[in-house]
Design a protein around this nucleic acid. Structure first.
Length: 256
DNA sequence: ATGGCGGCTCGCAGCCGA
């Protein structure tokens, strides 16, 4: 089973890329972020015609998450229970006995922004909810755009990024707190190339010069971690015409 | 060099992303 995360930065624009990629890679589950589509405008028919089922929670202009799956999705939950949030950033579903949680964690904008306060509060609420989810679902995968580069090796130029959002100490502590719940950063369980990133700025030829960040992650509970045989960043979609600024991260599991 | 690109909108300029 291949399970992936991909911030598509507008599904309206990237739908052809998604459908081509699913056909080429035979991915079983992909969590999407930044669909930027109201639910009434979601391209359900096109995705179903490709042999997938889909759950989504979206809004106009910003945010929006979806889970695309070959197998049926059940027990679908949008948002973090008990955490009032108009921004559509969370979607959970059970697929083949696995609890799949798709997250688009807030960016934070800058360390002195109200959006940074929101980001940290959001991460705290996610942590509290995940304690419940993990207790109920021993096979749990948390995939998405975390907007956090966990370590300096996940940043092309740590000195240039120092003092910025995505790399600040409080954000990294929140990331480690998620690991403290019993989750593993699956990417780092395997040998990886140096300078491995999942996002590159559109500007300044960021991708060509590999000036990127690793901010898209797949965290697995212990039961899934032992079933994970590989994690890879798939650079192919980032090389296409009119790409998303993120590229997919893919985990291979031996189950089911 | 805080710009740069690319997405969005009751658009034609400004906001936001990371």
């Amino acid at each position: 089973m291949k399970i992936a995360t991909w911030n598509v930065n507008s599904l309206k624009v990237r739908l052809p890329h998604l459908l081509d990629w699913l056909a080429a890679t035979q991915t079983d589950v992909v969590c999407l972020q930044e669909t930027k589509l109201e639910d009434g405008k979601f391209p359900r028919d096109e995705i179903e015609a490709a042999g997938y089922q889909v759950a989504y929670s979206g809004q106009k202009t910003y945010n929006g998450v979806a889970i695309v799956s070959r197998s049926p999705l059940s027990d679908i939950q949008a948002g973090i229970p008990g955490f009032a949030d108009e921004q559509k950033r969370v979607l959970a579903a059970s697929i083949d006995g696995i609890r799949v949680i798709c997250v688009y964690i807030p960016n934070g904008q800058s360390l002195d922004s109200d959006k940074y306060v929101y980001k940290l509060a959001w991460l705290k609420a996610l942590n509290v909810w995940l304690q419940d989810e993990l207790a109920r679902h021993p096979k749990l995968a948390l995939l998405g755009d975390y907007n956090i580069a966990p370590e300096d090796r996940d940043v092309h130029d740590p000195a240039a990024w120092a003092g910025n959002v995505l790399v600040s100490q409080p954000e990294r502590e929140q990331f480690r707190a998620l690991l403290g719940l019993g989750l593993t950063d699956a990417f780092r369980r395997f040998e990886q190339p140096e300078q491995s990133f999942s996002w590159w700025d559109y500007r300044a030829a960021g991708f060509r010069r590999n000036l990127g960040l690793r901010i898209d992650h797949i965290l697995l509970s212990d039961e899934l971690d032992t079933a994970c045989t590989a994690v890879e960043i798939d650079m192919a979609p980032r090389k296409l015409e009119r790409p998303s600024d993120h590229t997919p991260v893919v985990a291979t599991l031996t189950t089911p």
